[in-house]
Amino acid sequence: MITSPSASARTGPCPGWLWLNSSIGKKTVVAVTGIALVAFVIGHLLGNFTIFLGPDAINAYGAKLQSLGPLLWVIRLALLGILVAHIYFTMKLWQENNAARPQKYLASNPVGTTVFARTMRLSGLIVLAFVIFHLAHFTVRVVDTSYATMHTMLDGHEVHDVYKMVVTGFSSGPVVFIYIIGLFLLTFHLSHGLSSLFQTFGITNRRIRQNYETAGRVLAWALYVGYISIPVSIYFFGLGKGVLQ
């Protein structure tokens, strides 16, 4: 008989802990935290698009976020926790997977897999470096400290001039280059990540899997186009040049 003690007689490790330490549990945590990060990436892009509505729109958006006060910190810490969990579990999986296949084939022939899938750890770690740069650049503003002193008037209040900061930031060739590459690696990561989510959750079947994969790749590349549209518009098409005078 496949033994399983009745619920009342069960002893030993807690079932939640067993799940979290199982192969499937860990991979599900990666997928859940991944989807939360994707939700943030989509929301962040929609917020950033306010730059195309002019200085007042994005400055009002920035001021609104700042006015959240403690709530903003709750959101930031939650995102940090999610990111840390995502990285912790992927690195744990990485370590276990290396141990499960210590010897590679001498005549290596990767069948079935895609380059996006095989480079998840590398693309993920480069994305991490990019996220740190991005926070240092526009959130902590240590890459160029003059950003912190940019202020403007909005509806009679003095607010941080996000518009001028972004336009100044993306007027630098090297910075635009870093964003184009960093975002490209994020797209690489999401090209496999988004197409593999539903397989991990098991909301799939033979016929539908192909559609999920296509949809995931399309969304990943759509996010890329959306994100780079901002530095590209500023650097190559002179968006907001007026504020720099």
Partner: peptide, 11 residues
């Protein structure tokens, strides 16, 4: 000691 699936589909 089998590894965890990364949805590679080599299998």
């Amino acid at each position: 000691g089998f590894g965890n699936c990364s949805n590679y589909y080599a299998c």
